[in-house]
């Protein structure tokens, strides 16, 4: 469980102060995968560095497992850090240590016995599927393999919290997918609370349950991933989550309006996505429906279908159709109309 209250971080430099975090509040329950998305410079890494207490916050509170870590002495902090595992964008492995020794590093730091280290590292190697690379050096591994070592290392001292700062940003899409699956599998297996930082929408979509959108040191939008995905409120969230393939530009659809018609975007979520609403509407209200664009995808484990349709008919009938869709719990948005 992570609770962040009014977190402020100001970097002081000679000519001007940079406010990297401007009153951030978060609450991540145990076992949840929480995503933070934002553009470069939004303050994501600063947030991570404060939570992992690499950096001291200017003000605000951070509670991890109920313990207020912003008030601990350096010595107590070192022990508190055992509770937090970190996975880094650039892996940050020790180049002069083998895979085994890299994973053993945090265990050595906390004075775990040799025999215990050996069995724990072997266990972790198996978990991340790198048993055969045990004695290799990081320089000889691929990016995905390096990140697997990074993940194994971060889990070595059995933390309750795992923080991934752009853990897949240096990897290709296929490798990203395999690393994300691994993270999700680990999350399920050991009820790990995870904070996932990214600038890639696909990462949020694939593994997060909740998401916060960050801009200039503030969380400007927060919610369940499916909600933010289908109904982004802020412009930034829209730019991240809106499906670019569906070309939701008003201009394009206004151009093809045939008179007496609406162009609407309909989202089918979860179980909804399989019911025949379109044909029902055509039968019920005597309207014509043309399908302009559509897709279906999985977001945070939920199926989300999106259709852009043009409803043709009299104004009355179109109104009936749209209220039918809404009453069935479909999310609907009028993109263009010429009535």
């Amino acid at each position: 469980m992570i609770i962040v209250k009014d977190l402020v971080k100001i970097y002081k430099s000679k000519d001007k102060d940079i406010c990297a975090l401007d009153g951030v509040c978060l609450e991540i329950p145990k076992g949840q995968i929480f995503g933070v998305i934002g553009l470069s410079g939004a303050g994501k890494s600063s947030l991570v560095r404060c939570i992992s207490s690499i950096e001291k916050p200017t003000s605000g509170e951070i509670l991890i497992g109920g313990k207020n870590i912003s008030k601990l002495s350096e010595k107590k902090l070192r022990t508190a850090r055992k509770n937090i595992g970190m996975v880094f964008q650039h892996f940050n492995l020790l180049m002069n240590r083998t895979v085994f020794e890299n994973i053993a590093f945090p265990l050595e730091i906390h004075h775990i016995s040799r025999s215990e280290i050996t069995s724990r590292v072997d266990e972790l190697l198996e978990l991340v599927g790198l048993t055969d690379k045990k004695n290799s050096y990081p320089a000889t591994l691929s990016g995905g393999q390096k990140q697997r070592v990074g993940i194994a290392r971060s889990l070595a001292i059995r933390p309750e919290i795992l923080i991934c700062d752009e853990a897949t940003s240096a990897l290709d899409p296929l490798t990203t997918h395999s690393i994300l699956s691994l993270l999700k599998e680990i999350n399920k297996k050991i009820q790990l609370t995870m904070l996932v930082i990214t600038h890639e929408m696909s990462v949020i979509k694939d593994i997060c349950e909740r998401v916060a959108v960050m801009e200039s040191g503030k969380i400007i939008e927060e919610g369940n991933v499916t909600d933010v995905f289908v109904k982004p409120k802020t412009a930034l969230a829209k730019s991240f989550f809106e499906d670019k393939n569906l070309l939701l530009s008003h201009d394009i659809y206004s151009g093809i309006l045939t008179g007496n018609s609406y162009v609407v975007k309909v989202n089918f979520i979860g179980d909804n996505s399989v019911d025949p609403y379109i044909s029902n509407a055509i039968k019920k209200f005597d309207v014509d429906i043309a399908i302009l664009a559509g897709n279906i995808q999985q977001v945070a484990g939920t199926i989300i279908g999106t259709l852009i349709i043009e409803i043709r008919g009299s104004g009355e009938k179109i109104k009936d159709t749209t209220s039918y869709f809404t009453s069935e719990g479909l999310l609907m948005e009028v993109v263009a109309n010429d009535i």
């Binding site: 690499i54 902090l77 937090i84 940050n92 492995l93 180049m95 002069n96 590093f105 050595e108 730091i109």
Partner: peptide, 25 residues
């Protein structure tokens, strides 16, 4: 510096960072 930061995040003391990261690396 990322490696140093990683060691720090894992709870390594300054002495451990010097002897186990800085010098060997």
């Amino acid at each position: 510096s990322g490696v140093i930061e990683a060691a720090k995040a894992m709870g390594a003391s300054v002495f451990q960072i010097v002897t186990r990261v800085l010098l060997p690396e």
